[in-house]
Design a protein around this nucleic acid. Structure first.
Lengths: 346, 346
DNA sequence: TTGAAAGCGCTAACAC
DNA sequence: GTGTTAGCGCTTTCAA
């Protein structure tokens, strides 16, 4: 590797001291305009690039923040991250992105990586609830500000940016009930594919579903709640296939995720069951594929950009002002009704 | 921020010199086992974490590599990146990920960012051909090894990991011709949605298409090649809609990307034209959505994991041995034939 | 307005 | 085996 020019090189070339060069480059006031100009010109000419390691070492700052997400195959986290990057780059920070492949062990490794890289703050969507609580707490105690987004861990001194999963699951379920009733089914059987137990959201979405049934005087039968292991299309397909084989076909299905819903739709179609005429289907989280399916998938859309923006700003605030308190922001989501739930939208 | 323990803290606590601590921590041989043990224990006890900035400053290495991709909303690059990360983390490197939102200006900014972060190597899939050639060349000249993957820039001293786009476009087109002939159409009209001119691959895929037509004695009519601006689903939809309105409906369609193909399929369906019976459709690049469409989309599948692995290894090799030459690796792809092109696969 | 000098945390000769 | 010392590139007192 060729030697990069340093402030000393500039200083020598100009016959001045490196302190002055440092000051000029840092934009300090107390440098004679001529000297400053000479320095800036020379820096340009030599293609000087500051050495961040050295700069950060003296300042004992890194201007790096870390992001930890469960995965980024799906566009969900990618889109949030894009916004996070935008905000931080604008503010002169670098963003270290890590993903865990849905494994909490890898999440732990990633956190360690970020800690060693001396990030000044961490944005995280937790992979599996409860697993790394101790680590989050340790980092927080060490003074590294943390912001949870999308999936938070309870009892940690950290900010949170979430949507109200309970509420939107409730609305989604109500929508399904409404559609089926308009089709003349007074007591529709609304099924729910409940998310994995190790994800916090699963419970909240389930309770939204359950309470909506209650409100509308529908009984919460056991065989209407199906617990999933994974959240992939294949999982959804297999589960629905199983239900069909058992003769357990509902009038509507509300899924923990879009992928589950898409898989379920495929299974229904493969068995000659028509969506939405026979079964209305809803997902959650608005994947890229929601518009591609036939019929298009109804889903709960989360404000991804806003989530990224908010999380980034919250972290920034805490980094620049350590006295800033933690905050909890609940963002609004929306119901995107399409053909998979409502025949009128076909 | 609380003061992190340094090797000096450990040394003082043990009443020895920091050099010895440094040696023990680095795993050097010439440290008395007892001393070593004491040091390691104390480090553990004090929760010592090495300061990478300082370490790298002295070694004038960073052990960071940078990745630059056009986008990561689609799973394509995300999957490649996952593998890249795996390889580098295993080797003790950190990976700085950046994405350009398909803008070459942002790509330039990202390259600058990586350069300033003093990455030891760069993995890049170029956003727009020709735009940042000068910068790639400058980085290469500076001694920063570069590996292009998926989309390369010509004339740069850098390794490349690609698939043979020409060949696979050729095969895809041949497949379409074969299917239509088996359906009794001796002279099928095979249409191509040609990718944007600012992407290198567009031309190569087009030539594969064109040569396949030639080989099978089909004429290359003007209205069979449609140039696209974007590569999104909407673009595909609008283009096909336009064709249909002009009465220009082909017997088969080969698209530059899966998204274009999916959009085109939607337009066909909306106009009551059946896929694949009336029109066979093929995409390229195997998006996540290919299996969700109805019928499932035939496509050229690229070996994403292998691409990531190979690119990472190539870069690693050049980082650890600056004398290692540049290499050009062509990976194999495959044709995934599904219902959108061949009625037998419905 | 500028320079000299110390120091950020660590590594690596070079001594002993 | 271990300690001493210099230095990586930069910022920041403190003097001048």
């Amino acid at each position: 590797m060729i030697h990069n020019p340093t402030i000393l090189d500039i200083a020598k070339a100009l016959g001045i001291s490196k302190s002055t060069v440092s000051r000029a480059l840092a934009g300090a006031e107390n440098v004679k305009p001529q000297t400053r100009k000479a320095i800036l010109d020379m820096a340009e000419k030599m293609r000087y690039k500051p050495n961040y390691m050295a700069r950060n070492l003296t300042k004992s700052r890194t201007r790096i923040v870390g992001v930890v997400v469960p995965e980024f195959i799906n566009s969900f986290f990618s889109r949030v991250i894009i916004r996070i990057q935008n905000v931080f780059e604008q503010e002169g920070y670098r963003v270290l992105i890590t993903q865990c492949n849905e494994s909490w062990e890898v999440e732990r490794k990633n956190l360690r990586l970020l800690e060693e890289a001396m990030v000044e703050g961490i944005l995280i969507s937790v992979t599996e609830k409860g697993r790394n609580s101790d680590y989050y707490r340790e980092l927080a105690a060490k003074g590294i500000p943390i912001v949870f987004f999308n999936r938070a861990e309870k009892g940690i001194e950290a900010s949170q940016v979430l949507i109200d999963d309970y509420k939107w699951a409730f609305f989604a379920t109500e929508h399904l009930i409404g559609v089926r009733r308009r089709l003349g089914q007074e007591k529709p059987r609304i099924m729910h594919f409940r998310g994995p137990d190790n994800i916090d959201l699963s419970g909240r979405r389930y309770w939204g579903y359950a309470d909506a049934l209650m409100k509308h005087h529908l009984s919460l039968e056991d065989d209407l709640t199906v617990r999933v292991k994974g959240t992939s299309r294949e999982d959804g397909f297999m589960l629905m296939k199983g239900c069909i084989e058992k003769g357990n076909v509902p009038d509507a299905l509300f899924c923990f995720s879009d992928h589950l819903a898409i898989g379920a739709m495929l299974a229904l179609r493969q068995n000659g069951i028509e969506v939405p005429h026979q079964v209305s289907v809803m997902g959650f989280s608005e994947s890229q594929s929601a518009l591609v399916t036939m019929p298009a998938l109804s889903s709960v859309a989360q404000p991804l950009e806003e989530m990224g923006e908010t999380a980034a700003r919250l972290l920034l605030e805490r980094i620049e002002n350590p006295d800033a308190g933690i905050r909890r922001v609940i963002l609004d989501a929306s119901l995107n009704i399409r053909g998979s739930s409502n025949p009128e939208f076909l």
